[in-house]
Design a protein around this nucleic acid. Structure first.
Lengths: 136, 136
DNA sequence: TACTATATAGTAATCATTCCTATTTGTCAA
DNA sequence: TTGACAAATAGGAATGATTACTATATAGTA
């Protein structure tokens, strides 16, 4: 919650109940939710909130660096609150995403060849497969 | 082109001019094109082709394994013809994607922890940053 | 407390994606 | 080679996520 107040101040953003509650709800989430999923959860506390506010606010959060947009294959956009360096296992069948940590992945050296493309600011290993539930 | 005929046969799919030309156009592409981009290129040869056919066909190709859907952040879906093991550098500004090869990335061992999530069938390192063009 | 720029609610517009149906075509067997 | 049929296509319509718009409300500040 400190991050939230600090980043908002940094970017000159007002603290509104909507933003506070959307932030809380995203932080609580463990399922890489879509804007619509967060909207449904937030409405329990703010029944009059509009979808547009939730949608804009999540994207705003990802712009100021208190949330992240998760890579996907063109399904609905998903967000995650986890800003730590971590990696993803994605189920090709049910589209579930599981976070995992792996020190050796974190420390991967950048190959020489990427220098000619640009400056790297982020790195993630994405493993794809079939999750245990879907294997049955 | 051999792959195309073989995979179609394997899956009981008919060879149509549309499919052949969409396949050729995708193979030629070096820019991870969207369905719409391929549609525009294919129309030069088949002016009456419908967008739906291009769209469906590209997804079909990715299902039978002669094309791949590229991971993204919710922009339009993009396809690539490159089936070799490779990795991506993505520009956060202009959304360009560059392929690169890296043996040490290819050989990354799977961490013990992913066993509890499922069976891994694919692996990719995604580097994000700002490409040279956008740095100016 | 009053002011002002910012944010929100509610709704409308946009655009990629998907679905539907009549027609056409590739494939295979006679 | 021809005929029959399942599969594929064109064209357009429906869907659904995303984005834009505007009048009203509110947070932050003097």
């Amino acid at each position: 919650m400190e991050d939230f107040y600090q980043k908002c101040a940094e970017h000159g953003l007002k603290i509104t109940p909507q933003r506070r509650i959307i932030y809380e709800e995203l932080m609580r989430a463990k399922d890489h939710p879509t804007a619509d999923a967060i909207y449904k959860r937030v409405r329990r506390k703010l029944p009059n909130i509009s979808f547009d506010t939730v949608y804009r606010t999540l994207h705003l959060f990802s712009e100021i660096g208190i949330a992240k947009l998760v890579e996907g294959y063109g399904e609905d956009r998903r967000f995650e609150p986890n800003l730590d360096q971590h990696h993803h296992f994605r189920c090709l069948k049910c589209h579930a995403i599981y976070d995992f940590h792996c020190d050796s992945y974190d420390e991967l050296p950048l190959p020489e060849v990427v220098r000619k493309y640009g400056l790297v600011v982020g790195k993630r290993v994405v493993l794809e497969g079939i999750c245990l539930k879907c294997r049955k």
